[in-house]
């Protein structure tokens, strides 16, 4: 059984009558100890999916799904109290901007101890010891004195390490990293990524890595899900997907990596933008931008079907053409 099993998840914003589907029929499974990369351009619904799962949308979005199970529990039907017992303990999340993710009014130590006290009931010396241990696990130098530091006294990289320490405090089964390195500078990015992968292995956590950075995904992830306009358009093992993308969007995404355009005058791009509220196509969501578009693509929305090594939402998967 998968650790996380999402089937046909939709998140609607706006009015009941004319809802906007930020997430539109998304399927995703994550197994224990697995690293899954989620890639896609801005606005494709990557973060909203994770926020919906963690119950962080605070009644702003309407969440519909056939199945939204974590560790055998149905996240759709549990009460807020039950959800809060899972969130922060078994599922933890790391956010994009570490400089704003920590509360400026409390010390780093306070914010780490808060999670431990809540979920593990630690008190007194044991609490302090565990907080220090976590600071050392995320390789913060002078950890003991840093416990008493306020977030504004830390650099971005240090702050992100603190956020990570908070997230792994209760040995979560699933860690979600939402563009954990986007706000950091390049040298720090590599360090944080390495730390995350090391922790994933030593704690045997499942890790969902949301990112724009295809190189990172290629390097660390076991499986990839490519998102477009609120849907998973292709998913499969990293190697297969990168070598033989089945979906034209995946192909375009890979082609847009600067290294693939070496020698060319311009970088390869996919013309157009992600469809918005009012120009959502009836058929395949990529149809207005797809270089291989056919009549049937504009009329019928394809399902996510297995094509070779990967599953893709396409009437004319690229692998089939080659074969």
């Amino acid at each position: 059984m998968s650790l996380l099993d999402i089937h046909n998840l939709s998140v609607h914003f706006g009015s009941e009558k004319h809802p906007f589907a930020a997430v539109d029929g998304l399927d995703l499974t994550v197994n224990q100890g697995e690293i899954v990369g989620i890639v896609g351009e801005s606005g494709s619904g990557k973060s909203v999916t994770m926020m919906a799962m963690m119950g962080l949308l605070e009644g702003q979005g309407r969440i519909l799904a056939d199945r939204l199970d974590f560790d055998g529990k149905n996240l759709l039907t549990i009460s807020g109290r039950e959800r809060r017992r899972i969130v922060g303990k078994d599922i933890a999340m790391i956010f994009q901007d570490p400089m704003t993710s920590l509360n400026p009014s409390y010390t780093v130590g306070y914010q780490i101890r808060e999670v431990l006290a809540l979920h593990q009931g630690l008190r007194g010396a044991a609490l302090n010891r565990r907080a220090l241990e976590l600071m050392e696990m995320v390789e913060i130098p002078a950890a003991k004195s840093r416990l008493e530091a306020y977030p504004h006294q830390l650099s971005g990289g240090m702050s992100q390490r603190v956020v990570i320490a908070m997230a792994i405090a209760c040995n979560p089964k699933l860690l979600i990293a939402d563009e954990p390195t986007t706000a950091l500078d390049v040298t720090i990015q590599a360090q944080i990524m390495e730390l995350l992968v090391n922790l994933q292995q030593s704690q045997n956590m499942a890790l969902i890595m949301i990112t724009h950075d295809l190189a990172v995904v290629a390097e660390v992830a076991h499986r990839v899900a490519v998102m477009y306009a609120g849907q998973v358009v292709e998913t499969g093992p990293v190697e297969a997907l990168f070598r033989h993308p089945a979906h034209p969007y995946t192909e375009a995404l890979l082609a847009s990596i600067p290294e693939h355009s070496k020698g060319a005058e311009r970088l390869s791009t996919l013309p157009g933008i992600v469809p918005g509220h009012y120009d959502r196509p009836r058929g395949c969501l990529l149809s207005p931008r797809c270089p291989y578009v056919q009549e049937v693509c504009r009329a019928d929305r394809p399902a996510l079907l297995q094509h070779g090594a990967t599953a893709a939402r396409c009437h004319f998967p690229l692998v089939a053409k080659e074969a």
Binding site: R85, V87, G88, K89, T100, N103, P104
Partner: peptide, 14 residues
């Protein structure tokens, strides 16, 4: 603010 979202993500009570 992001840190309020972080607080919620910790599973803290409303």
């Amino acid at each position: 603010e992001d840190y309020v979202r972080t607080a919620r993500a910790k599973g803290l009570s409303p």
